[in-house]
């Protein structure tokens, strides 16, 4: 029966503590604003609570959460493309130290979502290409291509070296 509670309630807080910030960053970078990222995360956690498979290890759980989060964001972006809203990005509102503002995040947000996702997973969360390919359901060569093009686009948008 699908409706049974699959895991203890306290696990939810542990998962939020361990992966909340990471998932929020991914959703925020993909969607561009905090309220949408919150909605996406809520869906991710509901899915985790009711549909998550048995995880063999912690890394498996983390990868599953990233996959579900990126799919959820894609679904929301698809909906938003059909029902556009004039909403600005508020990514800076969630920085702990807003004095550091090099403009790299503004440049990142000008890139299409598919490049933003792979850049964040590779250069921020430090996932190897193979793992990213598994998470987003693409081939490693496709991920490499996206990283290559993403780096190029980001450099053009930022106007100088950033790594």
């Amino acid at each position: 029966m699908k409706h049974t509670l699959a895991r203890p309630a306290d696990d939810l807080e542990q998962v939020m503590e361990a992966y909340g910030n990471m998932l929020f960053r991914i959703c925020l970078v993909m969607l561009g604003n905090g309220s949408d990222a919150e909605d996406a995360l809520q869906e991710v956690f509901i899915k985790y609570y009711s549909k998550a498979p048995a995880f063999t290890e912690e890394e498996h759980k983390k990868a599953w959460l990233i996959t579900v989060a990126s799919n959820q964001c894609r679904d929301m972006l698809r909906y938003r493309n059909k029902h556009p809203l004039a909403e600005d990005t508020d990514i800076y509102a969630y920085k702990t130290d807003d004095s550091k503002n090099s403009g790299i995040l503004d440049a990142l947000m000008t890139l299409p979502e598919k490049f933003r996702l792979v850049l964040v997973l590779h250069y921020v969360e430090e996932y190897p290409v193979q793992d990213i390919a598994r998470m987003i359901g693409r081939t490693p060569s496709a991920v490499k291509m996206r990283l290559q093009k993403g780096r190029k686009l980001l450099k053009e948008a930022y106007g100088k070296e950033y790594m």
Binding site: N21, F24, R25, V29, K95, T96, S102, L119, M163
Partner: peptide, 10 residues
């Protein structure tokens, strides 16, 4: 990129 994104917290 990592420095600035890692500063984002929920």
């Amino acid at each position: 990129l990592k420095e600035e994104i890692k500063e984002i917290e929920m």
